[in-house]
Amino acid sequence: MRFERREHRPVALVIATPLIAVVAALAIAGILIAIAGAPVFEAYWNILKGAYGSRLSATETLTRATPLILTGLAAAVAFRARLWNIGGEGQLYLGAITVAWASSHLIGSWPSALQIPALLIMGAVAGMILLLVPLWLRLRFSVDEVVTTLLLNFVAVLFVSMLIDTVLKDPTAFGWPQSQSVADAAMLPKLLARSRLNLGLVIAVVLALVLAFVQSRTVFGIQSRAAGLNPQGAVFAGVPLGRTLVVVACVSGGLAGLAGAVEVMGVKGYVTTDLSPGYGYSGIVVAMLANLNPLGVVVAGLFTATMFVGADGMSRAMGIPSYIADVIVALSLLTMLIAVFFTQYRIRR
């Protein structure tokens, strides 16, 4: 048995790939649910009900999808150029704390119309700066950015933990390490009354549309793809490799930083060290499930949020640990990798 590269990739197969991958992941996770002694289909039904069964849960799912779409876009943009930004988690936290600091110490008195855009930009810039460090190490010392971005996640979270324990600590939080809250004028407008759903979702979807356009219709889109597919070839073709990677890093880090900013300004209002239940890492799965396509990221982000919110409800109803959502998400990454492989290769005897 060996693998042979396909001459053509059937369009129907490429479109069906993520679906096949998700179904395979759900089937494997189903075995784990069955081993735990629960009826599998009822469990999945409960996940769906938990995610969309009521107005509250549906808006909650959309709210959860927002940071996942943003970190997913961050990973997708970077991976396309083979810049392995695994530091989304750290960039998210740095964006979040920057917003909390700026709004509580710097520009909290500004009117919403000015303060919100300013804060969003500051959060994004913070994320950018954190990613530019490993990129500089790669370009200057040829250090693999996977490990450095991963390690910087821990540094960033500790840095945030230090700030909310000391200078940015909210004195009214009963000694709990929590940052001072952002000004009321900094909170993103709600999309629906009596819910946590906010303008962040619109920002995320619009950015996905913009990125889809940039990647398929602009010189930069082509350059960043060329830099990923074949760096040497790209240089011969006149692509400024270093400059392209710097721009890619700014976009990617910026999106992850923005995810943190939006989470603070849209939902929490302040920063704690459990602001993100691993949005940065889940973003990698979201990007891979979407095959690095920005519009696919919106769908994949929604799927991932459905699993997380739904599993919480299912867990309460059926006593299956809610970690099953993380298992399903991780499994879908692995099954997606395999499924994509079989769109490119076929088995020959």
């Binding site: 784990l32 990698i284 799965v285 891979m288 298992v327 991780a330 499994l331 990454l333 692995l334 990798l337």
Partner: peptide, 14 residues
């Protein structure tokens, strides 16, 4: 890279 991260995410959540 991606496969290793996938193994990490799966093994830890599992």
């Amino acid at each position: 890279h991606v496969s290793g991260l996938g193994v990490t995410l799966f093994a830890s959540s599992f």
